[in-house]
Write a protein that binds this DNA or RNA. Sequence first.
RNA 1: GGGCGGAUAGUUCAGCGGUAGAACGCUUGCCUUACAAGCAAGAAGUCGCAGGUUCGAAUCCUGUUUCGCCCA
Length: 878
Amino acid sequence: MTPIELDPLYEATKHEEQVYSLWLSQNAFHSEPNPDRTPFVVMMPPPNVTGYLHIGHALNMTLQDIAIRYKRMKGFETLWLPGMDHAGIATQAVVERQIKEQGLTREGLGREEFVRRIWEWKDKYGGIILSQLKKLGVSADWERLRFTLDEPYERAVKSAFVHYYKKGLLYKGQRITNWCPHCHTAISDIEVAYANDKGHLWYVRYPFTDGSGFVTIATTRPETILADAAVAVNPADPRYADIVGREVIVPVANRVIPVIADEAVLLDFGTGALKITPGHDPTDFEVGRRHNLPGMAVIGLDGLMNENALHYRGMTVTLAREKIVAEIDALGLLEKVDDYEHSVGHCSRCSSTIEPIVTDQWYLHMKDLAARALEAEREGKVEVLPVKWRKVYEGWLENINDWCVSRQLWWGHRIPVYHCESCGEVIVSVDAPHVCPKCGGTQFSQESDVLDTWFSSALWPFATLGWPEQTASLKYYYPTSLLITGYDIIFFWVARMVMSGLEFMDDVPFRTVFITGLVRDEQGRKMSKSLKNQVDPLDLISTYGTDALRFTMASLSTYGGQDILLSDQKLLSSRNFINKLWNATRFVVANVDVKETLAGPHPADDQLGPFDRWILTRLAEATRDVTAKMDVYDFGEASHRVYEFVWGDFCDWYIELSKIPLRDEARAPATRWVLAYALENTLRLLHPFVPFVTETITQQLYGGDHLMMMAAYPEADTMATYEKDAVQADFLIGFIKAVRNLKAVFHLPPTEKQSVVAVGAESDIAAVMANAEAVKFVGRFADIDTRLDTTQRYIKGAYGTMQVMILAKSDFDFEGELKVLRGKLEILNADIVKLEARLGNQDFIAHAPVEVVDKDTLRLEALKAEEQLVGAFLKGQG
RNA sequence: GGGCGGAUAGUUCAGCGGUAGAACGCUUGCCUUACAAGCAAGAAGUCGCAGGUUCGAAUCCUGUUUCGCCCA
């Protein structure tokens, strides 16, 4: 055989690009409906076109890729569908900023030209993240890449809108909405982030029209006084019972407004009397409706005081507030000002203060849709993991409000509602109308607003498969299997996908949704631009390699969805692990032609040595455990388990122990086969986690078009195990450890090979002597004997009931040994006392399961035997 | 105001009813021809606090302190 030369260090960057090209060249990520296989489908949460790869993606995408690669190897017809989201506001903002640098404005360019420029920009700079995803090793079906603004997708969005409209679930209405003066659009309730801001509570006097004094109200927003429609008190408030129905004068505006009674007024807030401003407060809007109050507005859509604001017109809200307070004070109507911290809504995109303003918007009626989504989850049709998120999901759906879906933007899906210019007839249809069905007119104007980005994202699991057409893909792949995403978009996206899936496909969009934690920095802080603690995954990839980043993400992720604290130490440890695997491979290939060996016959059972049998058993156990964890998407535990096997069993013990039989031509062939077999299966177990290094190695071993990513995942059930031999091998490993411990505790030079004497039960001694060669080799002993030379002194240790002794030199510190033995005896005694107490307890015997009692009984016996042995050593020492 | 999550070895975290675990760090000793990105051996925890349930509690229940998040 031609020995394969591998570098002693695995350099990730040398191989990764080439491996990814290989996968692409073999079309290994592509999926087509295949009736002979069960589909496993994951819809990638589409990153924004403007996006770049951040650490959250690295976690998300890694976990998805692990799931996909695992299922692919398990023989499923695996589809991972990638895509991008047009991300309305975000993208429009980016391009608007860009044209501003050229001295242009959106309005100046006009809608058509501006949208054309965004597309141009998207074609040039959009989707950078896709090439970054490839660096991560993402094995998505790039042939099926979807973009939420592509023509077929647009048909899906329009169809959904028309469907909702015809069903009566969509309505347009003048209502108070969250308005972002900076983004210049309405936003939905969940796009508002509330923060406790420090402000003031102003107490303002409203004089009665009849001159009989005044009523004092408390407000946090004095500038909206100009739009007041009433003063309200609680009907149950005795303090104000006699003023209800009277009239007061609005300060500064000098308008007359009534005093009304309404349940919504809190008795203990401020003075108990409130000003009612239906145009600028959601609660007041409702009060206004109940009492038929006019809804006047003094703040415009640009966030400035408007034409109704008298001499404050054109001022910012902040300035107007300052000025009007001064004016009220000058009028002698300001009673007092308190400091007051209160919750203020901010735009989740730009952080601007949200203005509740009455505008004309489209709303989607949510109650019924939500009820179905709730039911589906409660019935287990959608499994939400970790379970702690179930309540969050349920809670939101239970208290849902109608969804404001229209946005005053240009980049997005334009609402498919047309108005006949002749007769005003409203036509809602997927295709633009040509002739008005009512008057025969041919001129139409389309609604200028676009839909909330999330309206289109909500259709992602089926719109990407061709819906509303009943395509073969839609039939085969829907519902999808698994969704992996962060908890920040449970409401925005997850819940809405469930709703629309049920509405349009009559089935849930995915069987399981796994919510990941958030990646934080080493101090547990959220990664953010302002803290400058953001980590660029691409930097980590170039420093540690993609596989190290992936393995880190997997091993830090927990089933409970804990937030993840990323540290260099962890990445280093993962990199070292990958290098360990690489070097284990180097050892194997230096001794075995893996390809040829595995193509040849299996060694017969009687040719396998005890440690061969041991590692095969351990491999089967590891395979069983890893698969069990993978099957429930517990990637963290799966990664720990495979790590433990690779490093702890295969490298630390088997490779070392194999060096003995490899020197013996009679035994070498079996061991060579086991080395090859264990390596091959280890690589397969690891491939979903660390695809690059495992594929690189496979290329070295096999070459050509033999792909690791298409190999079958190991099946524990088909693996031979040798339980009894494994137990005996464990006994021998324990023996070696006991002698090593003696050597280390007494500072015997590790390079100096000592003579060891083992005395004990016949079967134990026989086991040791039968494997003397291997034991001596890895334990670094000169020789093992079973008889004591009574003329010599020995360093004494106990391994269970076995006496383990090392021939002592004349200068050996026997005082020190005495101390060690006494310490050991003390620990043994303590354990024995504890166990005896437990086993002496009749309640324990009566209630505890038999296995537990048996186990403790056996343990007590073992401890007592060892105690006796150590006791005898001490006596002998005198 | 309502809800959720964390508090376990120096650090970051697993475990979630039957002998306290891992990684990193630390200590001691080793360049043992796969790997010093390594090897061997070790030290290190009254599992936030107080009650309770149980033969048995990090693990279940109640209360409490504290940190963080979400919703209103």
